[in-house]
Design a protein around this nucleic acid. Sequence first.
DNA 1: GTGTTTGCAAAAGCTTTGCAAAGTT
DNA 2: AACTTTGCAAAGCTTTTGCAAACAC
Lengths: 143, 143
Amino acid sequence: MTLRDKLAAVNLKATHQRLTILAAIEECHTHPSPEKIHKIIKPGNPTISLATVYNTLETFARVGLINKVASLSGNLRYDPNLQAHGHIYCYNTDEIIDYYDEELNKVIIDFFKKKKVNNLKIKNITLNINGDKLDKTKDVIIK
Amino acid sequence: MTLRDKLAAVNLKATHQRLTILAAIEECHTHPSPEKIHKIIKPGNPTISLATVYNTLETFARVGLINKVASLSGNLRYDPNLQAHGHIYCYNTDEIIDYYDEELNKVIIDFFKKKKVNNLKIKNITLNINGDKLDKTKDVIIK
DNA sequence: GTGTTTGCAAAAGCTTTGCAAAGTT
DNA sequence: AACTTTGCAAAGCTTTTGCAAACAC
């Protein structure tokens, strides 16, 4: 599915800005803040404005193309990955890294099969792992 | 352990403001923003300033008396409960509610016993459950 | 062509800082 | 008395808004 198709599927016009922002957030796997996304795309797209990055990300989240992410960083963060997965937050690099593990998903689903959550319509369940990267130049790997 | 003792244990002087703020955050189980804490304590403590609430919460977090909490709300949130537990975030009330379950803790610990996390010094693992409260006047209950 | 989207600049909201006055031990 | 902490106001961030110009379909 192309980026154009994704926008069409949610009835958003395929503007250059939207295509650029969607591409950037899908490519960068640390869920950067709007400010950082703007810095990433600005060189190749000098007229794109920071307000448009903010507004566009919020639009994408509103129509369900991406999700808002809970963050310890104090600014807004978004995630283009819509399937169930966890997040690793690194205090010392401010990165939010996806953590997908089929077994973890199963463990969580199994747990909530046994529990009753009253008075809440659950939208999403995420495991957050917070810590410090030991070597900032390398990736965090869970296996 | 009294609030004074808790402050003494981390070498913070027991000022009226710190005692008030610590009491407020321990009493209120929805992890309110600094702004909301200020509103809560202001009537009984008219001279307490919002900046002091911000600074004091940050000081508490720095010395480990409370934790910062990942949040979808876009502002700072703190948690005085230092033991392992999860959080329920309600989009429609902006509340962050503690969710303690011994079995859940065990399930998560067991899971990570089997996994190796490379290049990360884990500080904390939290399960986040996000959704909408069905009846805003009542509590969310998991059993 | 019509209605939507963008850029810009300004406003609004949230958090931190600097410093004199007040408080703690 | 020595040192720390607070209140206030200002500064510094982050995010949203209003509106004319530009764009997608």
